[in-house]
Amino acid sequence: MKNKYKAVIIGAGRIAAGFDTPKSKAVLTHAHAYTLHSSVDLAGICDTDHEKTRAKAKKWSIRAFDNLAEMCIHVKPDIISVCTPDETHFEVLKTILKYSPKLVICEKPVTINIDHTKKIIGLYKRERIPLLVNYSRRFDTTVQNFKAKIESGEYGKVLGATGIYTKGILHNGSHMIDLVQYLFGEINAKINALYSQSDYLPTDKTVSAFLQFKNCPQFFLMGSDERSYSIFELDILFAKKRIRFLESGFYVSEQNLFSDPLYSGYTVLDKPIIRTTNLSTALSCLVENAVEHLETGAPLLCDGADAYKTQVVCSKILKKL
């Protein structure tokens, strides 16, 4: 029989407890993922905005705390989720170490400073506290199966890919970089920054760039403007088909090859077949990964080292501006 783990959430914003409700079909928050897992007891939430904390605590039928220290001393949590603004992660993650949780789940990026991220990873390694980072598409079983098919050669070689994102190279662009590294292997030396704009924070520019990865000879990263609309899409051209992840990755489009009926000798793409992915339950998979790691030592699907590699690429892109 599995143990019962006490979990708490630091931060009462959208990804913490705001995007969905206990009755929602999609699992879009840490609160929802915890409450659905039979081996987890969600025991508390805190935020510097006490009114927001109380509202989210009522929504999820959990206890509200005024601050991190009060919550951790009272609950003695096994699992802690860090869902605070990016710029607060460094101090929050350091403070958590005082309370010796069994595992910490952190929203991306680990910190906004590459040296701070490296320090945090070192501290958590020293204290033997696993750090699981929510680069959410790694926890989508559709993406996991897709990666296996790429590695098996089912689609043929990668000809090239384009990723479109908004809202900062670290805040959202790192999702794209992490996804591409996950699918195609680590980055090669080639990086060219092409364009930048500030559509999120002045300290986190949205950058367009050209990159090469181990198994992708040409990747074009296009930064769009969050002030107009949000977009996150990945378009991959293989030798045998075209795959696109659409609408933030909630849908996947597949196009097979066929002989052009009008122009003899040409091979073209067929009409797209569009299916839903499992991104809407990725947070449940993240919590399951955390529990399985604690129970059996199963590998974390995205640990601090993975997140650090992604942030290194983001930093290299920024340095090319």
Results as ranks from 00 to 15, higher is better:
F238N: 01
A193S: 15
H32P: 00
I121T: 03
G11A: 06
I191S: 02
R63F: 02
E226I: 02
F245C: 06
I129R: 05
E233V: 04
L183K: 01
E151F: 01
T48M: 13
Y5H: 11
I80V: 15
F146D: 01
G44F: 01
L123M: 13
R126T: 13
V252K: 10
I231S: 08
F90G: 03
I273Q: 15
C314Y: 02
A161V: 04
T166M: 08
G168K: 03
H175N: 12
K58I: 11
Q218S: 13
V312H: 04
S61Y: 07
G173V: 03
G265H: 07
F213E: 05
V252L: 04
S230T: 11
F245Y: 11
D270E: 14
L170Q: 04
K52S: 13
V133D: 03
L170A: 00
N188P: 00
Y99I: 08
E154V: 11
G185N: 07
K205T: 12
F232S: 09
T281R: 08
A33K: 10
K59L: 15
E226C: 02
E295L: 13
L201H: 11
E151S: 09
F213S: 07
H89M: 09
N192H: 11
P299H: 13
V110M: 09
A43V: 09
G304Q: 08
K6Q: 12
L179C: 10
L300G: 00
N67A: 11
P85A: 12
K58C: 06
A64G: 10
A209Q: 04
K23G: 07
G44S: 10
L321H: 05
D199Q: 08
F139K: 03
Q197K: 15
S61A: 14
D225V: 10
T35Q: 13
N113K: 12
N278S: 14
A161T: 04
K167M: 11
Y266C: 08
D303P: 01
G297L: 07
G168E: 05
K6N: 12
E254M: 13
R244C: 09
I96W: 02
K118C: 07
Q181T: 07
K6R: 15
Y195M: 10
K52L: 15
V110F: 06
D225K: 06
N134K: 03
L123F: 09
A209D: 01
G153W: 00
S315G: 11
Q255T: 09
D86L: 10
N188Y: 04
K167F: 06
I243N: 00
H116E: 15
S39T: 04
A148K: 13
D178L: 00
R138Q: 06
S264R: 14
K108D: 00
N67P: 05
N188K: 15
Y266P: 00
A239D: 13
L97I: 15
S61R: 14
D20P: 01
F65S: 03
E91I: 14
S198M: 11
G223Q: 05
E107D: 12
Y135E: 04
T35F: 06
H30T: 11
M1E: 09
S136K: 09
T84V: 15
I191H: 02
K149E: 01
Y99C: 12
I191W: 02
Y195F: 12
K241P: 00
T141D: 12
N188A: 07
V92P: 00
S248F: 15
L211E: 09
L301H: 05
A161E: 00
Y34M: 12
